[in-house]
């Protein structure tokens, strides 16, 4: 098993932390992991992205040309990364603010309206966990129990009381995601 993932969106959407929780979950699963962020001024309101690799074998490059899965949270990132998904790969996007939906026919396209749902549930802070839930539904590369352990590892102890809320958001995301093609 090797899953090469790009997560991309606006700075502040929780792109990097979603990647971190996914990487920690992979670690808990006993896999090799790498987490390579874009860093610098683009984090402050511009686009932010992170490459996460979860693999049973040693990971060579943390930098990739193409991805098994792209998790896309805005139009700019969709335009940039849709062409980089491997044929047969997986594109997950949040429909909010998307004016030009994905065009490719040789990949599996999923839509998850996590932004709308998180506003509706008044839980915008766990927006990224709803998206993560959607991803885990279609690509179950780590078990839920290890995601919870990953959350415990990546959140400071004073925030551990928020874990049940995050877990609930992941389950909401699992129900929310829909296949588009």
């Amino acid at each position: 098993m090797k899953e090469e993932i790009i997560i991309a969106g606006f700075g502040g959407q929780g792109v990097l932390s979603m990647g971190k929780i996914l990487a920690y979950s992979g670690l808990m699963e006993g896999h090799e992991v790498s987490w390579m962020p874009s860093y610098g001024p683009e984090q402050r309101g511009g686009t932010a992205n992170v490459t996460v690799i979860v693999s049973e074998d040693r990971i060579s490059s943390p930098i990739l040309n193409t991805y098994d899965t792209a998790i896309i949270l805005n139009q700019q990132s969709l335009d940039k990364f849709e062409p980089t998904i491997k044929p047969g790969g997986c594109l997950i996007y949040d429909g909010y603010g998307i004016s030009t939906p994905p065009q490719r026919k040789d990949i599996n396209v999923y839509r998850i309206d996590a932004m709308t749902k998180s506003v509706e549930l008044k839980t915008t802070k766990v927006f990224n966990m709803i998206v993560l839930g959607g991803f885990l539904k279609v690509r179950p590369i780590v078990r839920m129990e290890n995601v919870i352990l990953g959350l415990k590892k990546s959140l400071p102890e004073r925030h551990h009381k928020l874990i049940p809320m995050n877990e609930e958001a992941i389950r909401v995301g699992m129900d929310l995601i829909q296949k588009m093609n």
Partner: peptide, 10 residues
């Protein structure tokens, strides 16, 4: 370099 400094691994 910035890549090795910024990336996370086991």
């Amino acid at each position: 370099d910035g890549l090795i400094g910024q990336m996370m691994e086991k």
